[in-house]
Amino acid sequence: MNIFRFAGDMTHLASVLVLLLKIHTIKSCAGVSLKTQELYAIVFATRYLDIFTDFISLYNTFMKLVFLGSSFSIVWYMRSHKIVRRSYDKDQDTFRHYFLIVPCLLLAMIINEKFTFREVLWTFSLFLEAVAILPQLVLLQRTRNIDNLTGQYIFLLGAYRAFYIFNWIYRYFTEPHYVHWIPWIAGLLQTLLYGDFFYYYFHSWKNNKKLQLPA
């Protein structure tokens, strides 16, 4: 494992912890898209089907359990926790899941490295992860006011994706035959979706002002 991959995993972990911190301690999920969180739960459930069959390392297994556990518990908090669910912006978070799920599934059935059940679902999880942030970005545009924790959550998620790109570049030059077009293109697209957000995030940070997206 190289430093970029590790930094990516740690920013990903930090993003989840920031979100859980907000939900668990402040008991609020204002500004957080349940649609995005449900999509992430589907992403991890379909990607980590190999968790009990293919052992890579203790680190990998542990992190997979963390991402599965955290994504499903965030969904549970937002849907079922009697205090947290009251702060959910239900009327603003109207993005339809299946507009993203169905095309990703169809695309994964056409474009994949091997046409097997697990490989197609693994590819589906990559495509879905690439676009899963969209309901969250739409919700941010609508509510416009972003609290610090929500802003940091999205920033850390974007940083995780950027570190993964550096990880692929590093692996491409250091490992023979390391070429994986599908995760690379899906990952690049995913990172680009954060571009706009990054711009406003750094802008507000530089000017020491509250993060606000333009109408």
């Binding site: 190999d50 890579i56 990998n60 997979k64 693994w122 490992e175 994986h180 599908i182 995760p183």
Partner: peptide, 10 residues
């Protein structure tokens, strides 16, 4: 048959 190397990532 071993897993593709990309599957060792999260």
């Amino acid at each position: 048959d071993t897993e593709p190397k990309s599957h060792d990532e999260l």
